[in-house]
């Protein structure tokens, strides 16, 4: 135990002696973890948005605001008469508001409190489905030509846009993450190499008196892992800060139920720290084995 604390201290001392390089390593690894976290959160939120949209996976026909409910129902009869229309259900202004409250979730429902009754700006609408979707365009044109119909809203288009955006972010994120992880491994390995080089006298003495390679390695492993743990901890904190800044400033949380990062923060921090430590360890091991095989393999000091 005594030796372990000694080695730990030596490892931490290395970081301080070598602070510019250590800082650079932390910064790059941190960016890598941050981009990873941000991409995952983005994707996750898109999936939530998608599932909401898919819940409305039908075509909605909005009736003009100035058409009263009774007249609107007659418009519905006309729609039902069209060949390609399979179902056509009336959604009154009030039903629409209920659905809206459900969609934004319990937390945000209070935002819609003032919009009941006469203040409800939602139009009367019909939810329709078609027998043959390939004839969508012609049927849609026929529906819009019926007097009283305002427009047709098809959520499929929105869903496609979201999926497309998700794909771009995931792919770009993946490329950035791979590049950054390679860069961070390279920088950590270099930092450790510099640390080993600056301690080459100690290493040569350790070898000459018969210290095992593991004993020589541990301080540098500690150094690399500390860099990784620091990067992981800072990255998770920053991710939390940035996420909530973006979500609240863009008013995104008012539109739908965003991923609740607060609730999963503990596992996120642990995961980030573990990934950081693994990266730090890997970077050190690459450098240590290279050093001990080459220049450090000999007792002679360079």
């Amino acid at each position: 135990m005594k030796h372990f604390s000694y080695l730990l201290k030596e490892g931490l001392k290395n970081i301080w002696t070598n602070r510019t390089m250590s800082l650079a390593s932390v910064a790059v690894l941190l960016s890598c973890l941050l981009v990873t976290g941000a991409s995952i959160l983005f994707s996750w939120n898109i999936k939530i948005a998608m599932s909401m949209v898919e819940g409305n996976n039908s075509i909605k026909v909005y009736i003009k605001q100035d058409v009263p409910a009774l007249k609107a129902i007659q418009v519905g009869d006309q729609i039902r008469k069209l060949d390609n229309v399979a179902t056509c259900d009336f959604i009154s202004k009030d039903d629409g508001m209920k659905e809206m409250r459900k969609m934004v979730g319990e937390q945000n429902a209070s935002l819609l409190d003032g919009l009941g009754g006469d203040n409800n700006w939602l139009p009367n609408a019909f939810r329709i489905s078609m027998k043959d979707l390939s004839k969508y365009k012609e049927t849609a044109a026929k529906i819009t030509s019926i007097s009283g119909v305002d427009k047709i809203y098809d959520y499929q288009e929105l869903a496609n846009k979201l999926t497309h955006m998700d794909k771009i972010v995931t792919n770009v994120g993946l490329v950035i993450v791979i590049a950054l992880s390679l860069v961070s491994l390279f920088i950590i390995a270099n930092t450790i190499h510099v640390a080993m080089y600056s301690r080459r006298l100690e290493i040569s003495i350790m070898k000459s008196v018969g210290a095992t390679n593991w004993f020589i390695r541990i301080p540098f492993l500690v150094e690399g892992m500390t860099i990784g743990v620091a990067a992981g901890a800072i990255a998770s904190g920053l991710l939390h800060f940035i996420y909530y800044s973006v979500v609240s400033s863009q008013g995104i949380s008012a539109i739908f139920n965003v991923v609740n990062l607060n609730a999963i923060m503990v596992p996120v921090v642990i995961l980030f720290v573990i990934i950081g430590a693994l990266f730090g360890a890997l970077g050190s091991i690459i450098s240590i084995s290279r050093y001990l095989k080459k220049e450090g393999g000999s007792i002679a000091v360079l």
């Binding site: 006298l201 070898k207 000459s208 008196v209 210290a211 095992t212 390679n213 007792i299 000091v301």
Partner: peptide, 16 residues
């Protein structure tokens, strides 16, 4: 090798 070296004391020209 490390255990072998524990039976040897090395002295260097540059003291180290």
């Amino acid at each position: 090798v490390p255990y072998l070296r524990r039976n040897m004391g090395m002295v260097f020209q540059d003291f180290r």
